[in-house]
Amino acid sequence: MPESSPRVHVEGWDPSYGSPVAPDEGLAPSESEVDTTVETAAWAPIPGEDDGIDEVWFVDGIRRVDARLTIDDGEGMPISGICGSHAVGAVRWDRVGRSSSVEHARIDRLAVSGGGHAIEIVAPPMTYRAASVAGIDPAELVTLFHGSMRTAEARLTAGLADSGAFVIADGPVNDTRPRDVVGYIKTHRVAYLTGPEAGTIRALTPGTRTPLFLLGASGSFARYSWYQRLAVGPEGHGWYGIVRAEVAAAVGLEQARLLADRSAVLLPGVAAPAHTDARAPQNLVPIGALERALRRELGDQALVLRSLRSASVALGAVA
């Protein structure tokens, strides 16, 4: 659908969240192998299919840096650390009973210290367990903290899937085992499709999906992926409301198709209407609610910081 001159669209997301289409290098072509022929070679939107599954689970986590620490060992330069809290939980959508509930919410608090230090910080009723990175780069601290959350998310997702649940997890799939887990990716940083296949994305309507394509087939972490459209925006650009989803290739092609068909139909139904979410429509309603519920569980940020300050005084540390 070439156009004579480019049209400008104002993105629906709150600018502080970035853009759903945020190419690192002009939507850089994927470096991993992409096989677009696994399902079909004839690329056109495929209608999804609701197989009437009773329950859908959504898993997500949030994190917050509660305080930054400075560890002074009396020698050399002071070293950085952070106190962070993350919460992970799930929303169980009971399609038969037509109700949703937040389940399995769990908070973890970490005191991550650089330079190999490991200091537990107790600020009743909270305890920040000690975690350590060898280096002194503050970015490393956050990476470890973020990783801790991703691990908790993965553990909850795996646990739910193992008990027979169909799970939609926020973010890419990090699990190679054959589980009914759909990774749900809101932002597009890499162009997995090029040429005519990419054009199929523009032709998607809510309820349809692209054919499956296989990513990283030769690597240890192969997965099937597809694009689908959540909603049609008023005067939306060609990529408005597009999300990418993936499942571990280990589930097999047939199961991957079933999960993709199911998601193609179910996800538009829970897409956030434009005015209700800063990242509409990509931020799904259950996930938005889950994030709000989890954020509440973390406690008031100012109060948390205040108790950390009193705790650090008791420790003799300087916050």
């Binding site: 399609r95 037509r98 109700s99 949703s100 139904g269 309603v285 259950p286």
Partner: peptide, 14 residues
């Protein structure tokens, strides 16, 4: 409209 999402569709926990 969250009311509909909670009571009718059941997609929003509340």
């Amino acid at each position: 409209t969250d009311t509909r999402r909670i009571a009718e569709e059941g997609t929003l926990p509340a």
